[in-house]
């Protein structure tokens, strides 16, 4: 069930996201997870450099903003300094899978007891729609005006698949924010990623496929369709690693 009331962990501020952008839904899922676990008073959030840079306005939590890509390192410092706090980062695909790849991979490899919400919208939203390491083959962006070309740019980085190769992470899952069914699954995954930290299990990352109608050049409705028809097939949803369970489903 998705509650209709605003989660207590969130403020009343109106978000600055474009119409049809699913960043707002993902924020809400984070807020609901924090409410459900009753951890608002000890949770610290780290906003990225990207469209979510102002996320600290939307949560009733102690928060900071990391330099572009460095949120997992900042989270490591915060968590090591105060292990009783619950520390999460909220990062875009440019932030995590490009400039901050090293910080993300090594936080995962250390099994750092933190939670990462990784918002993959296949584009650099904030800077106006440049190609991201996650942009799909052939995807037209400001810096791949003829479509992402494999010969020049290689192929997308699949973060979940990559991190699942590491031994240390506790939980790695990919979800999508495009349909009621997928959002419900996303809600469960995000809550689990936070619960893992509360229980001291270690590194949890949830990749959430997200829309960017503005930079995809699509209406909100068509953006949701494109996610279903193009993005999800390339980025299969499911649990890629879960040390506390046997991996059975990839739905």
């Amino acid at each position: 069930m998705i509650a209709t009331n605003r989660p207590h962990a969130m403020t009343a501020a109106q978000t600055h996201y474009c119409p049809g952008c699913t960043h707002g839904i993902i924020h809400r899922l984070v807020g609901e997870a924090i409410d459900a676990l009753g951890i608002e008073g000890r949770t610290i959030g780290i906003a990225p450099v990207g469209c979510a840079v102002l996320a600290y306005n939307y949560f009733n939590l102690d928060m900071t903003v990391a330099a572009h890509g460095r949120a997992p390192a900042v989270a490591t410092g915060l968590k090591r300094a105060n292990p009783e706090t619950i520390v999460f980062t909220y990062q875009g695909d440019g932030d995590l899978a490009s400039i901050g790849m090293a910080e993300a991979v090594h936080a995962a490899a250390r099994g750092e007891n933190i939670t990462i919400i990784f918002v993959n919208n296949a584009v650099y939203g904030m800077t106006g729609g440049q190609m991201a390491p996650t942009s799909l083959p052939g995807q037209v962006t400001q810096t791949s005006p003829y479509g992402r070309n494999e010969a020049q740019c290689g192929l997308p980085v699949k973060v979940c698949e990559m991190l699942a190769q590491l031994d240390a992470p506790e939980y790695i899952a990919r979800v999508a924010a495009n349909s009621v069914k997928n959002v419900l699954a996303a809600k469960r995954a995000i809550e689990k990623a936070f619960r893992n930290q509360v229980e001291g299990r270690g590194f949890s990352l949830v990749e959430v496929l997200s829309t960017c109608p503005t930079n995809w050049g699509k209406t909100p409705k068509d953006a949701l369709k494109w996610m279903e028809s193009d993005m999800i097939p390339y980025y299969p949803l499911g649990v890629y690693k879960d040390r506390s369970a046997v991996v059975t489903d990839r739905t």
């Binding site: 900071t64 460095r70 390192a73 490591t76 410092g77 968590k79 910080e103 991979v105």
Partner: peptide, 26 residues
């Protein structure tokens, strides 16, 4: 205390940022 060998100097200074933000001498 905590000693942590970071993956790079970049990561190390941002870990410092985190621990300092937590109010600790770092």
């Amino acid at each position: 205390g905590v000693f942590l060998q970071a993956e790079s100097e970049i990561a190390a200074i941002h870990m410092v940022y985190g621990a300092s933000a937590a109010g600790k001498r770092v």
